[in-house]
Design a protein around this nucleic acid. Structure first.
Lengths: 113, 113
DNA sequence: CAAGTTATTAACTTAATGGTTGAATAGCAT
DNA sequence: ATGCTATTCAACCATTAAGTTAATAACTTG
């Protein structure tokens, strides 16, 4: 699970981390500011932030004893690209075509991999 | 981590499971067919499939001793909606605005929460 | 310098994840 | 009925993850 996309998905698979991202979408914030809303130790939030940073979803800028976190869109763009490949699945009732292809597949094995 | 979105992200945070989804995007397949490409026990793939099913990303239809898996778009649509909320971040160089807002915030505290 | 603030690190606990092997279940075919 | 095929379940192991508290580091200010 070392690939970037897995890292991104994994980082986002936690409501606290997604909430932190949402907060950062409206501007940078220090670790303490980010931690304030949560009933959780500062160390725990610090860990969450590190997970986000390791996934490239945020960057940090040091200013005195504060570390200001800033959202980085790159991984989200990649994620958008990934889900984009599936977007056609729910457009134009492609479900019907899906079933058709599946039947073909079972019948003649052409698409087997 | 019981909310649906976390479940979806978590299920997708594994390359094998994403590959299984990609395979299913071109039509339904049995567990054995899905397992074939992987150097992994069938039981392991079976577990992966169960994770995808629990996340609602696939459904299963029983036919004789085969379980045919089929991709379900719902959770992917939700995910698309989630990432969509961030799409503006990388359009129109909104980064500049981001920095501006951040400076405002540190200066006058107006946006603190 | 001493004291307070901010954040990270270390050590630990508990629970979840991803894999294994082997047995069990269910359906099909001889 | 017997055996083959397909799939799951159970028990187990190793690793990772999420949280805790306590200690440490880095900086500011009186």
């Amino acid at each position: 699970m070392t690939d970037p996309l897995s890292l991104t998905f994994s980082a986002l698979a936690d409501p606290t981390r997604r909430a932190i991202l949402a907060r950062l979408a409206q501007g940078q914030a220090s670790v303490g500011e980010l931690a304030a809303p949560y009933d959780m130790s500062l160390a725990a939030v610090s860990k969450h932030i590190k997970v986000l940073e390791n996934a490239g979803l945020i960057s940090r800028e040091k200013d005195a004893q504060y570390r200001y976190c800033k959202l980085q869109a790159g991984p989200l763009q990649d994620l958008d690209g990934w889900v984009g490949a599936y977007r056609e699945l729910w457009r134009d009732n492609l479900d019907q075509l899906d079933v058709y292809l599946a039947d073909m597949q079972r019948g003649d094995d052409t698409n087997k991999q």
